[in-house]
């Protein structure tokens, strides 16, 4: 194992970078550096002098890293993208997950394959988490809308809470819509009648 590899994570999302770093540490890679500041990125990366660089595909600074491919006097260690032509599945998987990896030229790609695999699965896990968070958030929003609609019905039709909710649910079923949608219509209508 190459646990001595120095790995840089370039990600403006602190949570995702932390998840990635944790995964790498669990896998035994102790030399992990996170970079969240994009200003002077190249200098920051060179200061760490990493063997592997991981970057979020949604980060415009990917183009900055591409400059490292250029052999110049200032930079003596050209860096190549990990994935090559024989590795379409790997590219596809990393692009789908939204992560890209670069390695220092000369490092055999087999040696870091599991690093990328781990990153892909962590990136995917993060997206799932994000998705679940969004679902939870919208559920909370719906809850609020329904509560407000119930309140309006209770007042307007002199119903108790249970009856107000039953009315919303029945209407939703009849119209083949979600309760939250009916509740939203109640709010809109109430707004119009103000």
């Amino acid at each position: 194992m190459d646990h001595g590899l120095k790995i840089v994570i370039v990600d403006e999302s602190a949570i995702r970078a932390a998840i990635l770093e944790e995964g790498l540490r669990e896998a035994g890679f102790t030399q992990v550096v996170r970079i969240a500041e994009m200003n002077n990125l190249l200098a920051r990366v060179y200061a760490v002098d990493p063997d592997v660089i991981l970057i979020d595909l949604e980060n415009p600074s990917r183009d900055v890293l591409e400059q490292m491919f250029q052999v110049s006097r200032a930079v003596r260690r050209p860096i190549a993208m990990f994935v090559d032509q024989s590795d379409t599945a790997s590219i596809q998987a990393s692009v789908d997950a939204g992560v890209s990896a670069y390695i220092v030229d000369g490092l055999k790609k087999e040696r870091i394959k599991h690093i990328l695999d781990m990153c892909i699965s962590r990136f995917n896990a993060f997206s799932r988490l994000q998705g679940e968070l969004d679902v939870a958030k919208s559920a909370l929003e719906e809850r609020k809308v329904i509560d407000r609609a119930k309140g309006i019905l209770m007042k307007a039709k002199n119903l108790n809470e249970e009856a107000a909710y039953a009315l919303l649910r029945k209407t939703a079923m009849n119209e083949n819509k979600k309760i939250a949608e009916i509740a939203q219509s109640v709010l809109t209508a109430a707004e119009l009648f103000k």
Binding site: E58, D63, E66, I91, V95, S100
Partner: peptide, 15 residues
């Protein structure tokens, strides 16, 4: 897209 690298890579792999 946000980077030329992304545009190039996604074109290359057929996305």
């Amino acid at each position: 897209e946000v980077s030329w690298s992304n545009v190039r890579d996604k074109l290359n792999i057929g996305l």
